[in-house]
Computed example of a mutant assay.
Amino acid sequence: MTTMDTMEIANTLVELCRQGAYEEALTLYASDAVSVEAGGPPDMAREVRGIEAIRGKGEWWTSNHEVHGMIVAGPWPHDDRFIVGFKIDATFKTSGERFTMEEMALYTVEDGKIVREEFFYAA
């Protein structure tokens, strides 16, 4: 199996996010990848480690939010890192409050896998 370079990983991640194929996107991550939020979700740490913890964050998001639409921009590469922009139109399932959220995510790649993702937004 050929290892993808950073730009191939970046382009693949962006395309999978545009398709809503988040489970498939996790195949781009190292098993011990780290995910860091600008502000931690309720009852969750800001930083989680490992693919199962990252999967759990995604499951928390989908169980608590209805996403009406998402714009995915980028990627913008820089050496072994790249940035992706997200604009999300969603509703909190518990309150019914609809909101728009913009965030940027910085991804770091080592040995053909994403090893770190960091999200930037107004927490």
Rank of each mutant, 00 (worst) to 15 (best):
E37R: 13
F92E: 07
K113H: 09
Y29W: 14
V115M: 03
S31R: 15
F99D: 00
M70T: 08
E52F: 06
G112R: 05
T3H: 09
E47R: 14
R98P: 01
T12D: 04
G69E: 00
E24L: 09
P42E: 03
E37K: 12
I51M: 03
I51L: 14
V14A: 06
N11H: 13
W61D: 02
E117T: 10
A38M: 13
M7K: 15
A73Y: 14
F99P: 01
A123I: 06
A123S: 13
E24W: 08
F92P: 00
W76D: 00
A90D: 01
I51C: 03
D80G: 10
V72C: 02
V84S: 03
E37D: 12
D80A: 11
A53N: 06
S31N: 13
D80Q: 12
T27R: 13
D43S: 13
C17Y: 15
E47D: 00
A30E: 08
A73F: 09
P42A: 12
Y121A: 03
P42C: 08
G96R: 05
E97Y: 04
V36A: 12
R55S: 10
T6F: 11
F92A: 08
L28K: 06
L106G: 01
E8W: 12
F99L: 08
I83E: 02
P42S: 07
V67P: 01
W60P: 02
E97D: 11
E59Y: 05
